[in-house]
Amino acid sequence: MDIKNYLDSTYLKTLEQSGLSASKHNETVTSFIQEAIDHQFKLIMIRPDQVRLAKEMIVKARSKVTIGTVISFPEGTNTLEEKLAEAQVAIDNGADDLDFVCNYQAFIDGDLETVRQEVLQGTQLGLQHNKIVKWIIEIAALTEKQIIQICCLIKKTVVSNFKDEQYHLVYVKSSTGFYVTENNLPNGATIPAIIMMLENASPLSVKAAGGVRSYEEAVQMIKLGVKRIGTSSALAIVSGATSDSNY
């Protein structure tokens, strides 16, 4: 197992969230991109406004690292039109993976059609441009029953509208890593939730995001069946260390 092939090295803090100066923040973003290139991680996951920089660095280095970005991050409440427009810009700037945040609040409120339409049209846009599409369901905001239901909704929408040879290009992803929980409960991937996702999203793939901070935890997720791991601790994972990162 080459664990690097599973790692989406992730840095998604805005300048304001980083608490850094603009120059230091830019240095941090650049260093994450360079680290992904140097260590040949599967992908670098960054904010949309950083995609063009990543593309330039990866092309210059003649690297095979791919570029992912987030859409409607982290709340997922943008309109369908706004999500599609943001995704199109990311595609134009060179993104390979589009990680959309589902409107999980609409789902919780019972507005299933809003979620169905964004999954349908967002997936369609991505696949038309030969991109990988991931749907972040934000498991920390959902009950176990809701995790199962939203996985089934996404799966049914994709299976009903796309060819079976395209299924491997669509993922259900656990978390943004930015959801604020009560009592310090986990806001990222947990083993029980990942098992539920794997059981109910198949034949779509599953990405475990947030909370995977060591090689052992990453291997455990891969053995369960996840195809990708989103983590800001990619270097620690491949080095056999344990990170204290909160994502």
Rank of each mutant, 00 (worst) to 15 (best):
K173I: 06
S174C: 03
I191G: 09
E182W: 05
A209R: 05
N184T: 07
L204K: 02
G177F: 00
P203E: 02
E182D: 13
I195M: 11
A189L: 08
I194Q: 01
L204A: 11
G210W: 06
S202D: 11
M196L: 15
R213I: 12
T176Q: 00
S174D: 00
P192C: 10
P203S: 08
Y171H: 02
P203K: 05
S214K: 12
N187F: 06
S214V: 07
V180C: 02
T176L: 02
G210V: 04
E216G: 08
K207W: 13
K207E: 13
G188W: 09
N184K: 10
E199Q: 07
S205C: 10
S214T: 08
V206S: 08
Y215K: 14
P186M: 07
M197I: 03
P186L: 08
K173P: 11
M197R: 06
A209L: 04
M197H: 08
S205M: 10
T176K: 01
P192I: 09
A193M: 11
M196F: 14
A189P: 12
A209P: 08
A209Q: 09
M196R: 09
S174A: 02
Y179L: 00
V212W: 02
I191Y: 12
P186A: 07
F178S: 05
I194N: 02
E216W: 12
S214F: 13
K207S: 09
S174G: 00
V180H: 12
V212P: 03
Y215N: 13
K207F: 04
N187S: 04
K207A: 12
P192D: 10
E217A: 15
N187G: 01
L198I: 03
G177Y: 00
S175I: 04
I195H: 14
S175H: 00
F178P: 00
Y171A: 02
M197Q: 09
A189F: 14
F178L: 09
S175D: 03
G177H: 00
F178A: 14
G210Y: 08
G210S: 10
S174I: 01
I191A: 12
K173F: 04
P186K: 04
Y179Q: 06
P192Y: 15
G210C: 11
S205P: 04
R213K: 14
S175Q: 00
M196E: 12
R213W: 09
E199Y: 02
A189G: 14
S175Y: 01
I194T: 06
R213A: 04
A189Q: 09
S214W: 14
A208E: 10
A209N: 09
N184E: 14
E182Q: 13
V212Q: 07
P203W: 10
I191D: 11
S175M: 00
V172F: 01
M197K: 03
S202G: 07
Y215P: 01
V180R: 04
G177E: 00
I194G: 01
P192M: 05
T190I: 13
N184P: 06
A189I: 05
E216P: 05
S214R: 06
N200D: 07
S175L: 00
N187V: 03
V180I: 08
I191Q: 12
F178V: 02
G177A: 01
I195E: 15
S175P: 03
K207L: 11
E217N: 10
E182L: 07
L185T: 09
A208T: 03
V180S: 05
L198H: 06
V212N: 01
